[in-house]
Design a protein around this nucleic acid. Structure first.
Length: 280
RNA sequence: UAGAUUGGAGC
């Protein structure tokens, strides 16, 4: 079994999926029962190449054959289901693994929380997050970021701010992504002053704003009628040698267009053209 | 078998 599994794993990692599957059939024909590792390895190989349904089909197959899934298998199943936007089934699998007394990993929580946020199920996400807090796992910046982003996307910016406070009090450092989410949320809620103060504070705390943070700030300023301020930020960004990207231009041009600022829009387009010339 | 998952615009 181990020999076959090792070979199947090797084939799968090399992207030779059909060959891996034929070897599985071959080992069965030889009366060799594939193990949970064999199936999980195949699932991982298919998932790696975005063949989610195929990956899940091996899960079904192992269950049919009475093979018991382990944590790694569940992790793969939940990943696949979340990536196919089937959060309900992912939650079911999550419930099943807990019933079977498997300890979900932090990675599983991250995947599941993110999927819930994308599916606009913030309530469930918070519930799962609570569960995580009650477990022996230690949440990291990444998990907090997922939840902060979820709160922001559901227009619950105050709770997002509280979440950031609570991570600090637990000595989990907010990072560039945490602050960018928060800045974006505050800005989209029309709280421009606070958004700007997050922007200032982040550099003070050693998180230098990147192109995403700058763009986000400019975007909310532009949409909030502070287009001149947005243009100032654009210049600051250039001075700091942070290259605007396609999203930066698109956001700025959109705001300028809506305000009828044709001259400035032309100027920005010229800058974009020149930048594209230099950096094709 | 250890993968996958977090922030910005328009459409």
């Amino acid at each position: 079994v181990v020999t076959y599994t090792t070979l199947i794993d090797g084939l799968g990692k090399a992207g030779k999926l059909e060959e891996a599957v034929s070897l599985l059939r071959e080992m069965e024909k030889q009366g060799c029962e594939p193990s949970v590792v064999t199936y999980s390895s195949l699932m991982a190989s298919f998932a790696r190449r975005d063949q989610l349904e195929e990956s899940l089909s091996f899960y079904d197959e192992m269950i049919r054959k009475g093979c018991i899934p382990d944590v790694a298998t569940y992790s793969l199943v939940i990943n696949c289901l979340c990536r196919s936007n089937d959060v309900e089934k992912a939650l079911e699998a999550f419930g099943r693994m807990k019933e079977e007394s498997w300890e979900p990993s932090l990675g599983i929580y991250k995947t599941l929380l993110d999927a819930l946020v994308r599916d606009e199920k913030i309530h469930l996400a918070l519930q799962i997050f609570h569960e995580l807090e009650g477990s022996s796992l230690v949440p990291d910046t990444f998990v907090y970021n997922v939840v902060v982003n979820g709160l922001v996307k559901s227009n619950r910016v105050d709770e997002a701010c509280k979440m950031v406070d609570s991570m600090k009090s637990r000595n989990i450092s907010p990072d560039l992504i945490t602050y960018s989410s928060l800045l974006d949320g505050l800005g989209k809620a029309g709280r421009l002053e606070e958004a700007f103060s997050v922007f200032t504070k982040m550099s003070e705390e050693g998180c230098e704003p990147d192109v995403v943070a700058y763009t986000s700030l400019m975007d909310v300023l532009g949409k909030g009628g502070k287009i001149n301020h947005a243009l100032t930020i654009f210049r600051t960004m250039t001075k700091k040698n942070i290259a605007p990207d396609a999203v930066t231009y698109s956001s700025l041009l959109d705001s300028l267009g809506k305000e009828g600022r044709v001259k400035e829009a032309q100027e920005i387009k010229r800058i974009r053209f020149l930048a594209n010339q230099e950096n094709p």
